[in-house]
Simulated scan of single mutants.
Amino acid sequence: MGAEADERPHGAAVVADGFGLKGPRGWAFREVSFRAGPGALVAIEGPSGSGRTCLLLALTGRMKATEGGAEVGGLPLPRKMAAVRRIAALGQVPAVSELDPAFTVAEHLNERALLQRRFDGSVRALLRRPAERKASARARIDEAVAAAGLDLAALPKGERTAVRDLERLEALRLSIALALIGRPRLLAVDDTDLKLSDADRAEAWALLRSVAEAGTTVLAVCSEAPEDALRITTLDGPDHKTPERPEASEASRTEAETETDAATDTDAAGTGTADTDADRVTEDTTEEGAADALAETGRA
């Protein structure tokens, strides 16, 4: 019981000071400065193409900043990117941590719990009897599903419902549940309010607010932030050249890193356990830089 309590999430403070990222076509974002305490709800607000996703990924250790610095849970960025990935988990981020539409809800949850046990469990946990390991995994799943407000019984086919058959809000809840299985200190979610009705948007923010109140710091990209969130605005400046396909390019830049992480993560989202070559090809982070980096890692 005590060991389980020790694993409960405690939020990571996030501090940025003149944080910026520049690619071959200009600045993705720059001069970002803010302080967020543990368990804060931070909304990264701005129009599409203003560097919101790049900032989210840089603060979770998946893109390498080129200016200024930041700290997540006391870990400096960009120097400790791998360590930050161990405590930060991604919910939905297009082309980085997407749900497989052919998988069922149960398949996603069981796979994530298995990865969590395999790559993040203690030696003692790995030596438990199979029945104990199974019960522990089920407990983690149930805890994460409850925290994400995902009602499995209300789905069309229960846990056997395919992702393609989920409503957008349900898919958002599932992606958050998957991230929370790892009990991260920082949860990051992209496109929080995209294609949601006003009612669903209110539910989504209520969910993220509850996660933050439970102790996990939350970073959420959105087009319009709620008034009670710490609002970080990314806007096009005179030196910021908006990419032609910003959201796709921002996410695809990190595909090499996150796919490598997925082999060592509990979550494609984000608790990687080792530095890789992908960490060292992050100097250019937009457009052509993304393609070059992917080619260098053999994933273009």
Rank of each mutant, 00 (worst) to 15 (best):
A212L: 13
W205V: 05
L194V: 15
L196P: 10
D198Y: 00
D198F: 10
E213D: 15
V211E: 06
A204N: 05
E213G: 10
E227S: 11
D193Q: 09
V189T: 05
G215R: 03
L208H: 04
L196N: 11
S223Y: 14
S223M: 15
A199S: 12
D191H: 04
V221E: 07
A206R: 14
R209H: 05
A204G: 11
D190E: 04
T192P: 03
A204D: 06
W205Q: 10
D193A: 12
A202K: 12
L194Q: 13
E213M: 08
L194M: 09
A214K: 14
S223G: 15
W205P: 11
D200N: 15
P226V: 02
D193S: 12
A225M: 10
A206G: 13
S197L: 12
W205I: 08
D200M: 04
A212I: 08
E203W: 01
A202M: 03
V211W: 00
E227H: 07
V221N: 05
A225R: 01
S223F: 12
A204Q: 04
A214H: 11
D190F: 02
A199C: 01
A212K: 06
R201L: 12
W205S: 08
A214F: 07
V211A: 04
E213P: 05
L196T: 13
V218S: 01
L196D: 10
D200A: 14
S197G: 15
G215W: 05
E227Q: 09
G215C: 07
G215V: 13
R201G: 15
A225W: 02
R209Q: 09
R209V: 00
T217M: 06
S197V: 08
E213T: 13
L207C: 10
D198C: 01
E203K: 14
T217A: 05
P226D: 04
A202E: 15
W205Y: 14
L194Y: 00
W205R: 07
V211H: 04
T192F: 01
D200F: 02
E213K: 15
V221R: 09
A220Q: 02
T216E: 07
G215M: 08
A225D: 02
P226E: 00
A199F: 11
A199M: 02
E203M: 06
A204V: 08
S210K: 15
R209T: 11
A206E: 12
L207N: 04
V221K: 05
V189A: 10
V211K: 02
A199G: 01
S223W: 08
A206F: 05
S210W: 01
A204M: 11
A212N: 12
W205T: 02
C222K: 04
E224S: 15
A214Y: 09
E227D: 14
S197N: 07
L208A: 11
V218I: 13
T192Y: 01
V211F: 06
E203D: 14
S210L: 08
V218A: 03
A199L: 10
D191M: 03
L219S: 05
A220F: 02
R209Y: 00
L194E: 07
V211S: 07
E203I: 00
L208Q: 09
A204P: 05
A220K: 04
T217G: 06
G215E: 09
C222E: 08
T217Y: 00
D191Y: 00
L219M: 12
A199N: 00
V189I: 10
